[in-house]
């Protein structure tokens, strides 16, 4: 079975990405809480560090993969012939295209902002 056709791989990838995003979020919250008088300059200098740039990029990759797999699961649940009949294919393809566009735009735009 191909790597991406394995339900186990998908299951693990989705959760690993979610865990990484959760830890990244916790670290961001910790940073904000531990700097009560934070201003724009501190915030800017925080995101200028190489390590946080790398981790932010990893966060974005996690977001893109998690969203792509997650929206695929939702789409293949809801937009099925059992629910939508003959329209299911066109609705599903349109939905996937819109998801792809949103993920791509958010990913590239965020990368430009971070780097």
């Amino acid at each position: 079975m191909k790597f991406l056709e394995s339900g186990t791989n998908e299951f693990l990838i989705i959760r690993a990405c979610a865990l990484f995003m959760f830890l990244y979020g916790v670290y961001l919250i910790y940073f904000v809480v531990s700097n009560p008088g934070m201003d724009y300059l501190l915030w800017k200098s925080f995101f200028e560090g190489l390590v946080i740039k790398v981790f932010s990029t990893l966060f974005l990759i996690s977001f893109a993969v998690h969203t792509w797999l997650g929206t695929w699961a939702i789409g293949s649940d809801y937009f099925t012939p059992a629910r939508l009949g003959g329209f299911s294919k066109i609705v599903y393809v349109s939905y996937r295209f819109i998801c792809f566009l949103i993920v791509l735009i958010v990913f590239i735009w965020s990368l430009i902002i971070i780097w």
Partner: peptide, 12 residues
């Protein structure tokens, strides 16, 4: 287990 490894049989 091999038969249940795909994305749908069990993981749905």
């Amino acid at each position: 287990l091999d038969d249940l490894e795909d994305s749908f049989s069990l993981y749905r």
